[in-house]
Design a protein around this nucleic acid. Structure first.
Length: 361
DNA sequence: CCCTCGATCAC
DNA sequence: CCTCATATCGAGGG
């Protein structure tokens, strides 16, 4: 039974929302930034509009470098307005829910949707539904988005990425192979820099190469599960249904220290508000957690963690505030100076998950 | 089977 | 020069 699956991706989302909110930004390079607070300029670019991209600006780039590249222009560097993006996203997701048989939100700015029933398996009919969704998003929110249609999530995701911004790419089943085969492997969801480099060493550079790669070789490189996923995905095979993920399994918050430090007390001073923030979010969702972790990021940006599993699930702030320092102490003993630190709670109790938080959805 | 930890990915 | 948050896998120890 062949499906019609779509993937909707809101174009340069944060920056585009800022443009809509403030039309005087029109035509200028706009960069939405995450400031770490360490120095004036320290932090990274979260999203850049297409004008900024003409100057080589990319998300993840340091703000300092972006400033250099944009010297002499009238570029705008903005802080995140997360709540505004959340609100906009929520409205668009409910619109998408109305227009489709099922949706699966995978980020603040993207979602899969299933329109198999609605389009009666007809990709031409599905394409007009997708156009209609794009029109409605534009009409209601003044935002452009890119949509891909395919027989499954893997293909739909590649398709939405194929033409941006404001794109619509339709890949019916009979076109899947010719669409995917020539693409570079790293276009595939799940293939990042590490996997891509490993594959390249073995002469696997295109999706077509990956589709016909020796399975034991892949298994040796990536392990069972991922090898199976890579092989199937490269062949355009993916049976994962479009459905909302159940419940969250972890919550974390991480900060950048004012200055690299190995002093437990200095770090704890800065971490205290993080405990409260995290506890607040746990309480909001009526969760109880059974494990607590601290995460340390070293000056060389490598990552170390320490985890403690509790005897009994709890929602107490004191559980965080008492265990985190012990974990952090052990971590510091091993690695010395830290650049960033964070706290994570996880292993939420199933009972609590199905109570208030689930009830509200 | 449980716990811990690092690695990887992608937002 | 280098943010922040989440999910998932696999290895290793017990």
């Amino acid at each position: 039974m062949t499906r019609v699956v779509g993937h909707l991706d809101l174009d340069y989302f944060f920056a585009q929302v800022e443009e809509v909110h403030n039309p005087s930004l029109g035509g200028l390079p706009v960069l939405v930034c995450v400031y770490s607070g360490r120095t004036e300029d320290s932090g990274v670019v979260s999203t850049a509009n297409y004008k900024a991209r003409e100057f080589g600006i990319k998300s993840g780039m340091s703000i300092a470098l972006a400033k250099k590249r944009l010297k002499g222009t009238d570029a705008r560097f903005l802080q995140l307005h997360h709540e505004m993006y959340e609100d906009t996203s929520e409205r668009i997701m409910s619109l998408l829910r109305e227009e489709t048989d099922a949706i699966e939100q995978t980020g603040i700015d993207e979602a899969f949707f299933d329109i198999t029933g609605k389009s009666k398996n007809d990709f031409a009919l599905a394409a007009s539904t997708a156009s209609e969704i794009k029109r409605e998003v534009l009409r209601r929110e003044k935002l452009t988005c890119s949509i891909g249609l395919g027989p499954n999530k893997v293909v739909a995701k590649l398709a939405s990425d194929f033409r941006k911004p404001d794109g619509l790419t339709v890949v019916p089943p009979q076109s899947v192979r010719s669409f995917m085969d020539p693409m570079s492997v790293d276009r595939l969801y799940g293939v990042g820099t590490k996997s891509s480099a490993l594959l390249k060493e073995k002469g696997i550079t295109t999706i077509s190469d990956l589709a016909s790669a020796d399975f034991p070789l892949l298994e040796g490189l990536f392990g069972r599960k991922i090898a199976v996923y890579f092989r199937d995905a490269a062949n355009g095979v993916d049976d994962e249904p479009v459905r909302e993920k159940s419940g969250i399994t972890q919550l974390s918050r991480i900060i950048t220290l004012k200055k690299d430090s190995q002093d437990l007390n200095v770090i704890l001073m800065q971490l205290q508000p993080t405990f409260e923030n995290l506890h607040g979010r746990v309480t909001e969702r009526a969760l109880v957690f059974k494990s607590i972790s601290v995460i340390g990021i070293l000056p060389d940006l490598s990552i170390r963690t320490r985890t403690k599993t509790l005897d009994k699930p709890t929602a107490q702030l004191s559980a965080i505030a008492e265990n985190a320092p012990l974990l952090l102490e052990s971590l510091l003993k091993e690695c010395g100076e830290l650049r960033r630190v964070g706290v994570k709670v996880a292993d939420f109790d199933a009972k609590a998950q199905t109570s208030l938080a689930e009830f509200l959805r």
